[in-house]
């Protein structure tokens, strides 16, 4: 299992994005998927590599050999749907591997090292931190609505639209507003306004694995776009 610098991972992702943007969907994508699968295995993400790879090849096989036998509206819808899936697949797959193999703190440290301004870094960090909160809030709001005889379903909406709207939006946004206030006070009192660049407890450093992978991907992308 190898370790990759988070900046390398970001570059890998960007190169695959560039590739999918500038090349035709086709057999070359299979090579890219293979590349991504190997990358994932090297990072130790077996489930996130093998399973998506298998699904890709199943879909690809179906697109080439199954789809032509289907007729009419279904054929057309599947064409569009699969087109979008195939276009996004390499990026999504690699993203899944990267997200699962990288800690948020590593990622933030990488961003700090890349000198990304705090106007981007702080909102991003807060986004990661707030996602789980929304889940929690949502379960409380569901409970609260049930206690008042309201349901967050289309039917419940029709029965009492303004109450359902209020019950959904107000607590969620009041909670968001309060959290923003309290969190900023806590962050300020811990020195976040410092003009000096923030350091990290993690050491982010390029290694030989990074260089090899970077070069391989660069090669892949050039070949993919040109060839």
């Amino acid at each position: 299992m190898i370790r990759l610098d988070p900046r390398t991972k970001l570059f890998l992702l960007l190169s695959v994005v560039l590739y999918t943007a500038f090349s035709e969907t086709g057999i070359k994508d299979c090579a890219v998927i293979g590349f991504v699968t190997i990358t994932g295995m090297l990072l130790g993400e077996f489930r996130k590599s093998i399973i998506p790879a298998l699904i890709w090849f199943f879909l690809y096989f179906f697109a080439l050999f199954g789809l032509p036998h289907i007729e009419g509206v279904i054929h057309t819808s599947l064409l569009a749907w699969l087109a979008l899936i195939f276009k996004c697949y390499p990026c999504c797959m690699l993203a899944g591997i990267i997200i699962h193999s990288t800690q948020i703190s590593e990622f933030m440290a990488g961003m700090a090292k890349m000198k990304i301004p705090r106007t981007i870094v702080i909102p991003l960090a807060v986004m990661f931190r707030y996602f789980p909160v929304v889940k929690e809030d949502w379960s409380y709001i569901r409970d609260a609505m049930a206690l008042r005889g309201l349901r967050p379903t289309p039917l419940g909406f029709i029965k009492n639209p303004s109450a359902v709207i209020d019950a959904l939006y107000v607590p969620m946004l009041v909670s968001a507003s309060k959290t923003a206030d309290e969190l900023s006070l806590a962050a300020v009192t811990r020195g976040i306004e410092t003009p000096r660049p923030r350091t990290s407890r993690l050491k982010i450093r390029f290694g030989s694995a990074d260089i090899i992978i970077l070069i391989s991907y660069l090669g892949l992308i050039i070949f993919g776009i040109m060839g």
Partner: peptide, 15 residues
């Protein structure tokens, strides 16, 4: 941008 602005951006971005 104040810290509160940036944190608000993050939270509302999620929403």
């Amino acid at each position: 941008f104040s810290v509160r602005d940036l944190i608000t951006i993050g939270i509302f971005g999620v929403l």
